[in-house]
Write a protein that binds this DNA or RNA. Structure first.
Lengths: 343, 343
DNA sequence: TTGTACGCGTTATCAC
DNA sequence: GTGATAACGCGTACAA
């Protein structure tokens, strides 16, 4: 039987023989209530099975007790990216213990991104939002600021931002990859990058160029949309070039897996003829043959840290920049010594 | 400038020179308001940029205007499964136009599933929930019923359920796979199934047994947890058996991909020595080598249908059973003629 | 500690 | 049929 009429704070007050206001004080652990009175009130509340009404609380304090995450990628790309599920689990690690809800919205091409944020803010559905996949001159920073809700950005935007940022140094991961390939004797190394419009993709690309130049590599970069299809196309283009690379550094695992597919289809051996590295440490990357050498980031920890930062921002803390631990390199079977030119 | 004080219904009433109550009637398209008065009220509302306060509305009508989705798998398994991102996009296709929000909760082992539903209901955060991955004797059906919120189940539970169900006939997909393999001359065919505790996994398994028996196959089934790791282990076990199968039917694409990895590692050719089929039509399955033959379901359409069904249930419609279009078979390169025994 | 106004939209009751 | 008035949902905040 669902209890149709939930007990209200007035019921508790009546049962404890005090006023509504005092009940509120007692339940919120605020001073000014005699210890025995407080005990009586708490007992009455527990007795009646009272739980606060979220909507009443929202109405009076003007907070939603919820945070929003708007995902602006197409479902295909999300599916191929293990980041979001783990990241969301990390957010929930934190939100679930603080009584916040996570409101998830999807902004596909048909559904305007700006409209989605606007709707969330107009309804005061959320107290703050998490901005992922920060882009160059990202309009969301100003939009969200304008909408008057708190926010945290994943990575530091290239526009002035009043929000706390939480960043992982992707560049460090890329440098580990480059060093690994250099040690294996590779010289012609290509990079299959994500969309240049996304700052983290751009940063990976930038880190690659710097590190590869320092290592004396002969490089080439192809930009993609992070999808497996894009990875396959980029790989085909690179292998078709007059001087194909001996190693390809992919900006995520899905593309690396697709890259191995293309190489195999052409009869190339991995890593005998071509070494391949990924980024993200997807589960699937461990189980294909050869298992891919990849950069592992702590998406779940990133989520938990982001949630804490957002709650702090909502509480009024000053914005700040938070740096996460550097990613690590997991060496598996998809990388090996560079083929000798003689072959 | 965020407008600190939003216009309320009282402001609109004042501007239009009418009472609060009448404004509410006009804004909700209810009879009893003179046409010109209504026009004046709507104009005043538009003029002031009034938008309804969700929390006030929630408080007075007792609805949250939100629906919940509790995901009870571990992040790893979610990441490996393209179903959820697409399904969620489908939910949003519907929710976003009806002004509902989607509240996402993750129930990992540490965070009790029942507690998650209870919290959602206690806070009246949601008006209804979507129950995915229905299990044998699933306790959530009774729990959610007890909590007094609406729900829709994905698939028909094996316990009495007062909720609308939305089902796709996975069995039909499996039958297509079996027919395909039979036509290719396979006789020793194994099935790598999902957890027997999940009804849809069980149904796939059941459909496999029936169809495989009818086709005269010599079968064997291994149960897994749907993860790539599980798929790899199951494949290894099957290939180690005295009479290894010539084809393996996997219950999802991630496991199939892992299966190909294991086969390749052992020097087997796919499909020359072993044919492999998946389920879900993941993007990655199209880009590995060989591309996998798989069963395609319309997860996004499933999501949209589920959202509509849930909204109808919340509105008070009678529960019913909804059947989706049958899945289809996408034949690619991972299946081929059965190897001749002579080899 | 108490009483009460407040946040904001909905709806039942009434008067014209 | 038009419209106004007031109570309601429920917790918070502040004056008394």
């Amino acid at each position: 039987m669902p209890q149709q009429t939930r007990p209200t704070i007035a019921d508790v007050a009546r049962a404890a023989g005090v006023s509504k206001g005092l009940v509120s004080f007692a339940l919120n652990d605020r001073p000014g209530v005699a210890p025995d009175t407080r005990a009586r009130i708490l007992a009455a509340a527990a007795d009646l099975g009272w739980t606060p009404s979220l909507s009443a609380r929202s109405l009076s304090v003007g907070r939603a007790f919820a945070c929003g995450l708007v995902i602006g990628r197409s479902p295909d790309v999300i599916a191929a990216d293990p980041f979001f599920p783990s990241f969301i689990a990390g957010l929930e690690d934190e939100f679930s213990v603080t009584g916040q809800a996570l409101v998830l919205a999807v902004a596909t091409p048909g559904r305007q991104e700006a409209e989605t944020y606007r709707a969330l803010a107009a309804d005061r559905r959320v107290d703050g939002v998490i901005l992922t996949d920060i882009r160059a001159s990202d309009p969301r920073v100003e939009l969200v600021q304008h909408l008057g809700i708190s926010a945290v950005t994943l990575g530091v935007p290239d526009v002035a931002s009043p929000f706390t940022s939480v960043s992982a140094d992707d560049g460090a991961g890329i440098r580990l990859v480059v060093a690994h390939l250099a040690a294996l004797g590779h010289r012609r190394v290509a990079h299959v990058a994500g969309p240049e419009g996304m700052l983290h993709a751009r940063r990976r690309h930038h880190a690659f160029r710097i590190a590869a130049d320092a290592a004396g590599f002969n490089t080439r970069t192809v930009e993609t949309d992070f999808s497996a299809a894009g990875g396959a196309r980029a790989t085909a283009a690179l292998l078709d070039s007059p001087e194909p690379p001996t190693a390809i550094v992919y900006s995520n695992d899905s593309m690396a897996v697709a890259g191995i597919g293309v190489a195999h289809q052409r009869g190339l051996r991995v890593p005998g003829d071509l070494s391949i590295t990924g980024f993200d440490d997807t589960e699937i990357g461990r189980y294909i043959h050869p298992a891919i050498t990849t950069v592992a980031t702590d998406a779940r920890g990133w989520g938990a840290t982001t949630a804490r930062a957002l709650l702090a921002a909502i509480a009024g803390d000053e914005p700040r920049h938070i740096d996460l631990a550097d990613p690590t390199l997991t060496v598996r079977a998809s990388t090996g010594p560079a083929p000798t030119p003689a072959a």
